[in-house]
Simulated assay, not measured.
Amino acid sequence: MSTLTISILVSLVIIIFVIVIFAAAITKGYSYKHTVDRLEDNPYIRTEEKNAETQKE
Score class of each variant (00 low, 15 high):
51 N>C: 09
56 K>D: 15
2 S>C: 07
15 I>D: 03
20 V>N: 05
5 T>R: 01
56 K>N: 15
57 E>Q: 09
30 Y>H: 07
12 L>N: 05
8 I>R: 00
29 G>V: 08
32 Y>I: 10
34 H>Q: 06
18 V>H: 04
48 E>I: 10
32 Y>G: 07
41 D>C: 04
21 I>S: 10
14 I>G: 08
52 A>Q: 15
7 S>G: 14
19 I>R: 04
40 E>Y: 01
53 E>M: 07
27 T>C: 06
44 Y>F: 14
11 S>P: 05
11 S>F: 05
38 R>K: 12
53 E>P: 00
39 L>T: 10
14 I>Q: 07
35 T>M: 00
43 P>R: 00
11 S>D: 03
42 N>Y: 04
51 N>Y: 09
18 V>D: 01
26 I>D: 05
21 I>N: 06
17 F>Y: 02
10 V>K: 12
54 T>A: 15
55 Q>D: 15
45 I>T: 13
11 S>R: 04
45 I>S: 07
30 Y>T: 13
30 Y>V: 07
46 R>W: 07
43 P>M: 02
31 S>Q: 08
56 K>G: 06
36 V>N: 09
14 I>E: 07
46 R>P: 05
12 L>Q: 04
12 L>A: 10
53 E>A: 13
27 T>A: 14
31 S>N: 13
43 P>L: 03
35 T>D: 09
34 H>A: 09
54 T>P: 03
17 F>A: 14
31 S>D: 13
52 A>K: 14
57 E>N: 12
5 T>F: 05
13 V>L: 13
36 V>C: 06
6 I>A: 11
38 R>M: 08
34 H>S: 12
8 I>P: 00
52 A>Y: 02
1 M>D: 03
38 R>G: 12
10 V>Q: 07
55 Q>I: 15
